[in-house]
Design a binder for these strands. Structure first.
Lengths: 157, 157
DNA sequence: GCAAAATATTTCAACCTTGAAATTTTAGGC
DNA sequence: GCCTAAAATTTCAAGGTTGAAATATTTTGC
């Protein structure tokens, strides 16, 4: 029926979307900033390190560097640096897959796994606290909406 | 009535909040990444530069460095660097307020203002495109929710 | 008036981030 | 079996980010 491209939609709707984006970004920054402070204070670590450990925690057998960067939506070079530092700290080890000497599989050490478990527990409580005023119903509705948004995006790109 | 702290809420609700946070963060990263690419490609600039210019555009008489960093939710030192580079590029100038030689007011030059106007126009179209599948009604509802979240946060901190 | 506290900004080291180039290794075409 | 293309990662320069220390200036208390 309506074949006009997205940019020719009702102008008021586009203003509303812009407002939504700005507020979403600010809310995300507020929460991220608070999480960063707490991770630093309580566990002497950073959000990027937490993210990497979180990804690895769910894959005990480890992840390729490229899978890690794709999953986290960051560049390859970025992951290299973060993993390097986690290795230095003894939380992650690198191995090769099969006989392929190009690949590098990162996985948590026991110390890394234990450390992440502690952080994840605190993290969940922090989020519950920070998003405490969002009702369960709102959270569920919003969450579904965002998942749909992501799926759509993935399919198109 | 119920005086239990946020962390003692219904566990299922907390899981739902955690899921919401993770999805919100990922959605924000997808959109931010796309905006970064386009700003780089079309205007040879960065998101932080865009943010600073956006803030200054709304205050033609300029902003204190500290107001800028508070508004953008970033550190003081951060703003110093970004403004330095915008000054080098001829988009921003610094001045002193009154006789106070501690303060530094940054404001857009004419070139900066013209450049931002062009970027803002493109930016609005991009957001309309990227969030095109969010209905106007959803956008409004979500937007109100996020504003309430922010207001609450500001009052508590 | 002056010393001390408060205010505004900058500087700096460490880390994060990207995108492009370089490196190393494997796979494919012939 | 080679040679070239493809794949996986690392390296690197430039910029972004924080938090703490340093600098410069103004205000306050006395």
């Amino acid at each position: 029926m309506d074949a006009s491209p997205e940019t020719l939609q009702k102008p008021a709707a586009n203003k509303e979307r812009l407002r939504l984006w700005i507020r979403l970004l600010r809310a995300a920054r507020v929460v991220e900033g608070e999480l960063r402070d707490r991770l630093k204070r309580e566990f002497d670590t950073t959000l990027p390190r937490f993210d990497v450990m979180s990804a690895l925690y769910r894959q005990p057998e480890g992840m390729l560097m490229s899978d890690l960067s794709r999953f986290l939506l960051v560049s390859n070079g970025n992951v290299t640096g973060i993993v390097d530092r986690l290795v230095t700290d003894g939380f992650v080890v690198r191995a090769n897959r099969d006989g392929d000497r190009r690949t590098s599989i990162a996985r948590l050490t026991e110390a890394g796994s234990a450390r992440f478990a502690a952080m994840a527990e605190a993290h969940e409580i922090w989020i519950a606290e920070l998003l405490g005023e969002v009702s369960e119903e709102d959270a569920r509705r919003l969450s579904v909406m965002l998942k749909a948004f992501r799926s759509n995006w993935e399919n198109e790109h």
